[in-house]
């Protein structure tokens, strides 16, 4: 059921939620978290759909904060809050409130969101686009345990990675990082099959796709060997080639779904590496809400060490201090 409220307040929205729940006959709720989606009108529909799909795995209260641009000084002075409350059938599993903010209240979105958070349950904020420069310091971001941004949806993804590294706070995460979990998992599985040492790596993928950089940084950080970033037409990541002491090990994915795993001395094998949709990524993000130390270590490895590399840079620095592998994560935690 849907309840539309215009020029409303958080307390009226709370009343509407209770009313909606009573109307559909299920006053008890088992929601496990509050997911706040901060977006503009243009991206609201897709984001809401992805988040509702993800709510099938993680029943949640979904708060979609839509900031409406003001077109005149009078608009800007006029604060207004409209809300659309959805429960039952219309809200996936859980409850959804779409909040539309006009005028001055845009700068005080946290005052609208705070009363609507579920008691005692974790809060996740997701910015599908236009993430703040420092998510942890953002008024909405500071309410959350987990702050999800997407460096893929920015003008300069590589620059974005630099910025994220500079302001990283435990709890930050990036959908560009979630996108490569299947790749990372498959690469780890590939190395399970050989007992050789990796000597160098090449990560190939489309330009301006931060997932490629993140994967390369992760490999460089974990393996401590030179990692080269090569450019292809895509889609997304297309190949990872590792040179090892017993020959090449590579995963090639030309079409975005079925990849080929080649290991020297073994026949080629097909492995499923489908590109996943946003709902699956969000569901993965919501699975664990503790800080992702591996992401932190990867991000802190530094995108610049990757590009300067072409060989020695990354490998040399890494080789000199193998014991310092955990250091970046610790530094981050101390901040």
């Amino acid at each position: 059921m849907k309840i539309d409220l215009t020029e409303t307040t958080s307390s009226k929205i709370n009343k509407a939620l209770v009313q909606g729940r009573r109307a559909i006959g299920s006053p008890a709720i088992g929601m496990v978290l509050t997911l706040v989606v901060v977006t503009d009108e243009e991206n609201a529909y897709d984001a809401l759909r992805a988040a509702s799909d993800a709510s099938r795995e993680h029943p949640s209260r979904l708060l979609v904060v839509v900031k409406r641009p003001s077109r005149s000084p009078r608009d800007r002075a006029n604060a207004r809050l409209d809300a659309e409350v959805r429960v039952g059938e219309d809200a996936g599993i859980g409850e959804t409130v779409v909040l539309r903010l006009y005028g001055e209240v845009i700068d005080h979105a946290q005052s609208v969101v705070l009363p609507l958070l579920l008691a005692d349950a974790p809060v996740v904020v997701w910015w599908p686009v236009n993430a703040p420069a420092n998510p942890a310091k953002d008024p909405l971001g500071s309410l959350a345990q987990r702050r999800v941004t997407d460096s893929y949806a920015t003008e300069g993804p590589v620059e974005e990675l630099r910025k994220r590294a500079a302001v990283y706070t435990p709890g930050d995460t990036d959908l560009a990082w979630s996108r490569i979990t299947p790749w990372r998992s498959m690469l780890a599985a590939a190395l399970d099959q050989v007992t050789c040492d990796v000597t160098s790596v090449e990560v190939e993928g489309e330009e301006e796709n931060p997932s490629c950089e993140l994967l390369a940084m992760w490999l460089a950080e974990r393996l401590g060997v030179p990692v080269r970033r090569a450019v292809s037409k895509g889609p997304g990541l297309t190949a990872v080639r590792m040179e090892t002491t017993c020959g090449p090990v590579s995963i090639d994915r030309a079409n975005g779904s079925l990849a080929t795993l080649s290991i020297e001395g073994q026949p080629d094998r097909a492995v499923a590496l489908n590109r996943r949709d946003t709902a699956e990524l969000i569901a993965e993000e919501l699975r664990r809400l503790d800080p992702d130390e591996t992401y932190a270590a990867t991000l802190h490895f530094g995108v610049d060490r990757l590009h300067e590399s072409d060989g020695e840079g990354a490998g040399g620095a890494k080789g000199a201090e193998p014991a310092a592998k955990k250091a970046p994560a610790k530094k981050a935690a101390a901040k």
Binding site: A188, D192, T195, D197, V198, L219, R222, L223, G224, V225
Partner: peptide
Amino acid sequence: SAHHGANPL
């Protein structure tokens, strides 16, 4: 480079 045995990834 990576050690034998333990998978560095």
